[in-house]
Amino acid sequence: MPDVMVEAAGVRKHFGLNEVLKGIDMTVDAGEVVCLIGPSGSGKSTFLRCINHLEHIDGGTLTVDGELVGYRRHGDRLHELRDKEVCARRASIGMVFQHFNLFPNMTALGNITVGPIRVKGEPREQVRDQAVALLRRVGLADKADAYPNQLSGGQKQRVAIARALAMQPKLMLFDEPTSALDPELVGDVLEVMRGLAGDGLTMVVVTHELGFAREVGDRVVFMDDGVIVESGSPTEVLAHPREERTKTFLARIL
């Protein structure tokens, strides 16, 4: 039986009076690729951000690799973690954003190396070699010294993936990684993600790319209005949805 990487039980989150997550139960096994789909405003991105504590949750429990996200349990009390401890846990969870969020004041290589050097304190030379290898892996070996504004959207996103990978994460979160890209650039990014899935990396991907979900996802989870409507294998959810809401959504998007 595989290890559980992410375990969510009754996760709730509200912004003011607006309840965005209304009790999410979900597990992600180590090595699994889970694709979260659903209409915008369904809470899928918020849930993803809860996994690495960019948003704190208001109810339920959420663990990554057996550790509570953002809290420590003491008997029946949850103690909020200090900034330093939250950082240490985040360092092992990679995240890729819709709008890349590359650091514009650093080169591609700088973006990739800043984490391992500054956060993990690894030796510069070694980090540099790894970063060059990562750039080669995402097909951008010649862009090491380019600044983000000299790269296309697809190239930026691939550098962002390399930046997350440089921290050697045990889990990767993708927040609509191809939504801000020109259609012709989507393929390169998905290609890299396909490679990562093939290498056995645990991935949670919020996406609108149903083709990718069908091909690469081990499991597809359909969310709407803060709840999980249905989840299952890509064939089950995408080709033979049981729920009416899933059918309507798929009909609209295809």
Partner: peptide, 10 residues
């Protein structure tokens, strides 16, 4: 957010 996601402190 990107900086925090690679484990940087505030």
């Amino acid at each position: 957010e990107a900086a925090q996601s690679i484990g940087m402190s505030r």
